[in-house]
Design a protein around this nucleic acid. Sequence first.
RNA 1: CGGAGUGUAGCUCAGCCUGGUAGAGCGCUGCUUUCGGGAGGCAGAGGCCGGAGGUUCGAAUCCUCUCACUCCGACCA
Length: 434
Amino acid sequence: MRMSSYFLPTLKETPSEAQIVSHRLMLRAGMIRQTSAGIYAWLPLGWKVLQKVSQIVREEQDRAGAQELLMPTIQSADLWKQSGRYEAYGKEMLRITDRHDREMLFGPTNEEMITDIFKTFVKSYKDLPRNLYHIQWKFRDEVRPRFGVMRGREFLMKDNYSFDLDAEGARLSYRKMFLAYLRTFARMGIKAIPMRADTGPIGGDLSHEFIILADTGESQVFCDKAWLDMDVLADNPDANGDLKDFFAKYTGIYAATEEMHDAEKAPADLVTARGIEVGHIFYFGTKYSAPMGAVVTGPDGQPVTVEMGSYGIGVSRVVAALIEASHDDAGIIWPDQVAPFKVALINLKADDEACRSTCDGLYARLQEAGVDVIYDDRNERPGAKFADMDLIGIPWQLTIGPRGLKAGTVELKRRATGEKLELPLEEALAKVTA
RNA sequence: CGGAGUGUAGCUCAGCCUGGUAGAGCGCUGCUUUCGGGAGGCAGAGGCCGGAGGUUCGAAUCCUCUCACUCCGACCA
C-alpha cells in the first residue's frame, strides 16, 4: 500500500475524550472514528487489524473442529420469550419494532437463535457432537460506554455453541475450546490467562475468563508466577485426544479474578496485576436446550436434551487490549502476527531519483515476496514519516535515504526494541522476508 | 440510573462573567526556504458559535426548553 493514496488520517494531537491509552492511540493512528456513544466506524487501518485478529480466531476455531456460519444481527423477540430471557435481559438489550409492530431486537448474544437452528435440523445422537460459531456484530446498550472499543455498545464478537449428548461429551467440548483459546491468544503474541469465573445468571458449573495482563486493565487479578513461563504452542497437546492431562495441568496453576481470589489458596509466588477480559467460556448444560426443546433421539430410542456450552471472544476488544499490552510513548507496537503491515518502507527523500527508484524496486520485490508492506512515498519531512510509522506500530521499518544509498546501506529498525541496523540492501531484504 | 461537566474551524482550545464586525496554535492549500526523528517564512481557504424559542436597537455571550457528547459512581451473560 502506498501511503500517498492510503486513507490514513493520523492525528498529532490527542482527542480530548480519550482516557485510556488504547483509545488515544486508536484515534491518533486513524484506526477508528466514533459515530455515536460507544459506536465506532473502523477505518482502513483499524479494519485491517480487526481482520487479522479475526482470522487467527477463525483458524483456531476451525482447528478445534468448530464450523463457521453467520447468523443475523437482528432477531425476533419470539425466540427470547421461549428462553425466558426477553424479560430477564433488561435494558441492555436494544429492542426495536418493525413496520408491522413486530418486536425485534439487535442481538446481544445468540444462544436462542443457534439453539433454534440446531433443534430444527439435528434429531439424532448420531449427529452429535456439533460446535458452531460465527463472528458477528453484537449490540449491548451499556449504560455508560467508555474506553473506546474496549467497552463499546456495538462490538465484534466470535461466539460459538457446542452441543453434546451428555455431560462427559460437553466437558470434552469445553476442554477443546479451552485449548483453542489458549492457542488463539498465544498466536496473537499475547498471554491470556484462564481464570476460574463465576458463572453468574447464565448458569452452569464450569466457566473460565481469559484475561490479558496489562497495567491499564480494568480489574485486579492474581496468578501464580509460573503462568508467565507457560507456552501452550510449545506444549502443543494432541487436539484430538481427551485433553484431560492438559486441562488438569493448566487449571492446576493458580489464577483468579478479584471476585474469586482466595488468599489462603494462593501460592507463594503470586503475581498481582491488572487484567482485561478478552474471552469467556461456559458449560451450562441444558439451560437453553430444555426450555427451547433441543432434544435428540438417543441410542436407546429415548429423547435426550442436549448439553450445551458457549464460548465468546470479544474480537474488537482484543484489538484494544493488544494495544494496552503493547505500546510506548511513540505509539502502538503491534505483535508481528496481528500487525496491519509487516514492513514499513520509508523513502526519506521522495523527490530524489535514486531514493525513489530504489524504493519502488524494493516495494515491488516485497510485494512479490508476499510481504504486507506499507510504502511511505509521500513528500513529507523525515520526522513526520518516522513519527507516523512509530505511531501505527509497524514491526519493521526499512528506511532508504540519500546518505545510506551513498554508503550502500539502508536502515532497518525493529519497532519493538528500537534497535537500528545499517545493512546492505539485500541483507535487510532477506531479514524482513525471512 | 444518581452526580458533575462540555458543545465555537478538521484537532486542541480562547472569547461568555461585564451583549456591540468570529479568534489562536496545530492541521489543510499555494509559493518559498528546507530536508536523517512531527523545522522556518509569506500568502490563503475554512464557522448559522449543537438546535429551537425568548429578552434586547443588537446575542457565541443573558434566560427557557431541547439534543448530543464526556467524566465520576453504581452497573457490566
